[in-house]
Design a protein around this nucleic acid. Structure first.
Length: 108
DNA sequence: CCGATGACCAAAC
DNA sequence: TGTTTGGCCATCG
């Protein structure tokens, strides 16, 4: 399916429920390309699809993206907090609480 | 039209 | 044990 690899990443990001956040590595792994975490970042960076909640995608440490903040200061954090995501005093997302856990069983 | 850039993660040595 | 390399696609100018 999906002749394009990008569609897989975007689709995975689209599966992230509100109030949760996912990391590039998780998405790339779910897409079947554990070595393309970088491509996921490029995908979100270049993808202009408003249907993709790129604000729910954070780095492995839960740090919000500087580029996102550069375009809209505080937008990403505001959106995440509005959805119920918990932030730490360090300014990073509390992955221990809001890290999205992909349900692979439903697919099996 | 073409070239270069762009928000990362994990494994190997 | 820690550090470095490797890998990918779409959009911009």
């Amino acid at each position: 399916m999906s002749g394009g690899t990008f569609a897989v990443f975007l689709d995975a990001v689209r599966q992230i429920p509100a109030g949760k956040v996912a990391t590039y590595g998780q998405i790339s792994r779910l897409a079947g390309t554990p070595r393309c975490a970088r491509t996921v970042g490029y995908a979100l960076a270049g993808c202009r699809d408003p249907s993709i909640p790129c604000h729910r995608v954070v780095d492995r440490f839960g740090g919000t993206k500087a580029a996102f903040d550069a375009h809209a200061p505080g937008t990403q954090r505001a959106l995440l907090e509005a959805e119920g995501v918990v932030f730490r005093p360090d300014g990073t997302v509390d992955l221990e609480r809001c890290l999205w856990v992909p349900l692979k069983d439903e697919n099996a």
